[in-house]
Each structure stands twice: as structure tokens, then as C-alpha cells.
Amino acid sequence: HSTEQTEIADLPACESLNPGNLQLISELKNPSSSCSVDVSAVWWERAGTKEPCIIAACEDVVSLWKPLNSVQWEKVHTWHFTEVPVLQIVPVPDVYNLVCVALGSLEIREIRALLCPSDNESEKQVLLKSGDIKAVLGVTKRRLVSSTGTFCNQQIQIMTFAEDGSSKDEQLLMPPDETILTFAEVQGTQEALLGTTTMNSIVIWNLKTGQLLKKMHIDDAYQAAMCHRAYSEMGLLFVVLSHPCARESQAFGSPVFQLLVINPKTAQSVGVLLCSLPQGQAGRFLEGDVKDHVAAAILTSGTIAIWDLLLGHCTALLPPVSDQSWSLVKWSGTDSHLLAGQKDGNIFIYRY
């Protein structure tokens, strides 16, 4: 029923999109030939001062860049990984001198904390968790939630870090009977955590008590949907999903993001906005990031597309630069910048 009731975002032609919505302001050159896997902007504390830094991850090295001025960056720390390759960066909100990384080949095998102890300023990494890790997310109040295993053997754990990132406390959440695919914190409802499952369900936990509050099956059209953002307003839950497996149709074009509204009391849901590719733009969703009301996606064509979820349409298209397809896109957690990465490890910073 969701597709019939979904409002389709406008499909403007590619030519009508204003590329001026994105202004290049800086570039981080990767001197190594290692393949780029993730990028993130985090607050980092150095000598008692919090700075907006950029973390860039290649398969075998993670680098921390600090700003010299508004356009120049300096690499200040590197962490090396010789045994297991880096898969993704996992920022932990409210911690200022720690970032986590997930390591593995196809699936996550380890989660490590990366630190720079202030006494000797040398890089340090600490193994936090190992095993068959399915999903991981940093959440507010210096917490890291992760799920390991599948179905009945699933364990969902929250670690809480001390302010300096050193010690930690551990707590378990009640597992659902379906394998968790992604986690998302629910903005607007403190202590609510949302998860999507491989069986097209959305689950909600109470982070404080560990209770599993609700499991809600959503339309089968949302298969393998990843949740990029969730917020609660006026008693309803708004969820932004992406659709790596969505099929192109004549009526809806090629869907990339969908805004779904759920009543958590009744488990009823309805799709309210479908973000499709502009007319004439080919490709499907590869990966993306949503912050506030803006959603960015890398398409299989190598182009980055941006949607404004309030306006309901695509606002910018960024084609590959220097014939290099885009492979990473992230909204900065410290300002309104967009971080765009290429496979060769070069990171471009745009103002949106």
C-alpha cells in the first residue's frame, strides 16, 4: 500500500539542477595508493582545545587531519592496520579524542577504538569487540551499540566510554528474533534506538532499560532497507530509508531514499516521500548519508546526488571529477560541509 500513498518527489531534468549548491572549498590529497574506504568529520581534543578534524580511512591506514585554516589541512596522526583491513569509521558522539573503526573483509570482524593519549601523543588502538559483528553505531552520551550473531544467537550490546575515552561500561539490549541490519538513534525521543532487520522489520529499544519495545513489519517493498535517520515528532516516527535493491519503474523512476511514517503504538506505517533520480540520470543507490533534512547518495554511475527532504526534490548533482567516480559521501558532523571521496583516497570538501 505504501507506494500508492507515497508522494513522489519532483523529478526535475538534470539540466535544471543548480551545481552552484555545492562549492568546492578544500581537498585532502592521499599520498598513498591505498584504496579509500570511509571518511568522517569529528571533534578532536588536542592540548585542551576541541577542533573539527577529518578522519580518512584507507584499507590499511586511518589518518586524522586537523585544520590549519579554512582551506588547508594537516595530517597529525595515523593508525596502521596490517592484519585485518578497515571497513568503516564509527564516530562516537560526545567523545572528543576517540574514534572507532570496524575491521573485516566482507563482514565486520573487529571493532577497535583509536586514541591519542595526551601524555605522549602517540597513536594507540584498543580492541573493543571481535566476532561475527552485523551492525555498529555510535550513539549520544559516548555510547557504542553493536550486534553480533544472527536470529536467536544474536547479542546486542551497548558500551559506554568515559569522557577521555578510556574506561567503559557494558550493557545488553533484548535481541529481536530477526537479524539486525542497521541501527539509528531516534532524534526527539531520548533513549530510543531503532533497528532495521533482514526480514523487513523495524524494531525499537529503550536504551536505558534494554527493553525491546516494538517490532513492526514494514512493506516488503522495503527489502534490505538501510535506515539513515529517524526522528520522532507529534507521536509519530519518521524514518529515512535507502533502497539498494529498489527496482526502477515508469511511475516512480529510480527510487533512492524514502521517508516512511510509522505510528509506534499501532505499528501502522505509510510512505510519504519517495526521492527518485532526476529524469535522464541513470544509476541506482550505492551508498549515502542523511543529516537533518538533506540526503546525499553515491549512484552506480559515479555521480553524487543530493535531495532536500523538506522541498522534496533533488537539489544538486555532482558528476565525477577528473574522470574519477565518487566512492564515498558523508555530511560533516561538525559543520554544513559535504565530504566526497574518490577510490584513490583523495577527499574533496564542499560547502552545501
Binding site: Q5, M174, L212, S232, V261, N263, P264, Q268, V270
Partner: peptide, 23 residues
């Protein structure tokens, strides 16, 4: 679309579900 399709809405859904769910 109408939120009437979603059934009765509660502003305190999180607290209510927390009191109903098993500990």
C-alpha cells in the same frame, strides 16, 4: 496521505511502550 490510516497516536508512545514491554 492521512495519518488517520495509522490509527490512534500517542505523544507519550515511548513511555507507554516502555511500561507495557517485558523488563
Amino acid at each position: 496521505c492521512s495519518t488517520a490510516d495509522l490509527g490512534p497516536i500517542s505523544l507519550n508512545w515511548f513511555e507507554e511502550l516502555s511500561s507495557e514491554a517485558p523488563p
